[in-house]
Write a protein that binds this DNA or RNA. Structure first.
Lengths: 352, 352
DNA sequence: CTGAAAGCGCTTACAG
DNA sequence: CTGAAAGCGCTTACAG
């Protein structure tokens, strides 16, 4: 079967057995060399390495994991809202960097705020026997992950906390960040500040609204329900709602947008009406080119690189055996003023 | 061993054997039910399903692949330049959608233009025995993938073609798209059009430069080497180079930027000098907010969704057994005028 | 329609 | 330091 040559025709893939035969050693010796066990005669090891290289041998992770004590697949899952959104993509990349340094591969998944899809993808990850999962859940009840956790798979929640499940968590300080931004607008005289919120089911949308309220309460400014828009997911949805608000008889004088897409929708609606120097705007989550718009867009910037790194560090610590109580990390936000948020109220507009 | 209850203490994970014992059938019958083989007594099948559900059984893909004839891991790899770049991320998402519809999971990887990293990641994918690979290579010689191909793993090249390897390919029509954009600038009277190119080693950078040259040749306008900048990877690099060009005694009157980051760098440098209504700019590859800048940025838009879908379709066809000769698909670009590219030459500037 | 035996490519546990 | 046997969780190939 072993002919000593390299070409074996289509479909051929060398196994340890083939390497062993070519190197004239036992299977077990090949296994020792491949796994860098030290107790191998250098000459034999060399023969094995040459044979492996000649046959283009690549060990089979799946087979190895099957028999291994720890059952490690050398794979983790990173399951986020939408990998094509810059926030998710940046977290993914930060995790990828730490994974690659450990020789671990990353299975990526996007939930698109669909709990059903979350259930399907996590089940699939279970069938792949991933070594751990970093997840920004779309669902609100995470008890179903309990079984997987009990089977020894660590979970780290990122951007959104677990519900009815105990697990490590990495969050932005959404509430404080939002409160600071809104307090800034209030300090410039604004009393009618519109709120653009994402889906009500999303933790961060709730937190950012709480921050918006906190700032109002602290300043003794009432929140007007008609200035609060929720369940805005897309640029277009925010664009339409902001247009409607601005066209009202007594429009808000400032806007606080709860995420990057709604900020962009707000910019479009404001610009279309030529109000970019009249209506103040602050967005949550930074975005590329925010500084090149006119005026530059003031934002509460998150730190997705730090979030991804932190989540990966927690996950790998668990994979390495850390069984301490679950941890919760808060990543600070940064308030970046660029102009759009520094427009004071125009007294002509402040009719309440 | 089987106690009929659900809780088994930490570390427990049900196997087919456990399910078989609980359902009082043989292992093989469980296997038949899990794999939806039709020849199972409905009553037995029901017992198996109930037992599987009670034990939270999830089949082990790795073990199944090991014994299976086809050896399928239900995993593909999508290896691109940088998953946090919108172009790569959009391709990734398009592939993910098609993969999820087939119950296939996606291992993602970013090469960052590092051939060494490409070698490591592709080797890792081989060890995971992925069923197929979609790749935008960083290296220039792809013979090393021959072994993997011969072992039956299909490769689809996206954005960049294979060198010294025969494989399916999906490309943008970079050369024609670039030529059209530059011809547009020439038609507006520009004779000094700077070119901002990515790394010379990158196929698309070469093609876009060829398109830039084609348009010059067709119009009988000479290309000035001093207007050609290469190996620009980042926003900052483009920003610095464009600044230098604009500050020269006789600056170019227009700029053609070869990718989205260099376009953004060019915008920064132009704006900083207040030249956004004087210097024309066209970019290759569209980007979010290009229409909200002032003036809006004219671009040659690619279609990464179509590219990802096409690549996935080709890959899954191969996985399903298509062994026809390799295919090459060209995805058209779209020229989108928004203002920055429609600035005619100012006669005062056209000193040659 | 159902099941007992063998084997996928590896590692474990053991013997020499 | 080296190797033969058993077994990980499944599917295949076969017998009933």
């Amino acid at each position: 079967m072993v002919d000593g040559s390299t070409g074996r025709g289509p479909g051929f893939r060398a196994t340890m057995k083939d390497v062993a035969a070519l190197a004239r050693v036992s299977l077990k010796t090949v296994s020792r060399v491949i796994n860098d066990e030290p107790t191998v005669n250098p000459e034999l090891a060399d023969r094995v390495r040459r044979a492996a290289s000649q046959l283009h041998y690549q060990p089979n992770f799946g087979a190895s994991a099957l028999r291994r004590r720890d059952g490690r697949s050398s794979t983790i899952a990173v399951l986020l809202e939408d990998l094509s959104n810059p926030f998710s993509a940046t977290i993914y990349r930060a995790v990828e960097e730490m994974a690659i340094a450990r020789g671990v591969s990353v299975l990526g998944g996007s939930f698109d705020e669909d709990p059903q899809r979350e259930h399907e993808i996590t089940a699939s990850m279970s069938r792949h026997r991933v070594d751990g999962v970093i997840i920004a859940p779309a669902s609100r009840d995470h008890q179903y992950l309990r079984q997987e956790q009990m089977a020894g798979v660590p979970f780290v929640f990122v951007d959104r906390p677990p519900h009815l499940l105990d697990a490590d968590t990495v969050l932005s300080d959404s509430r404080a960040g939002a409160a600071r931004a809104v307090a800034h607008l209030i300090s410039l005289g604004h009393r009618r500040i519109a709120f653009l919120g994402d889906l009500d089911t999303i933790y961060t949308a709730q937190e950012r609204f709480q921050g918006y309220r906190d700032a109002h309460v602290a300043a003794g400014v009432p929140v007007r329900e008609s200035d609060v828009a929720r369940n805005l997911r897309t640029i277009d949805a925010a664009y339409v709602v902001v247009g409607r608000l601005l066209d009202a008889p007594v429009p808000p004088t400032a806007i606080f947008a709860g995420q990057n897409l709604s900020t962009i929708g707000a910019v479009r609606a404001i610009r279309e009406r030529g109000l970019q120097r009249r209506v103040a705007l602050v967005g949550f989550d930074d975005f590329l080119l925010a500084d090149l718009l006119e005026p530059g867009v003031t934002v509460v910037a998150q730190n997705p690189v730090a979030m991804g790194r932190e989540a990966a560090a927690l996950l790998f610590a668990r994979i390495d055996g850390d069984d301490s109580p679950s941890k919760k990390k808060i990543v600070e936000t940064t308030f970046i003023t660029r102009g759009s948020g520094e427009i004071p109220v125009d007294d002509r507009d402040n009719r309440l």
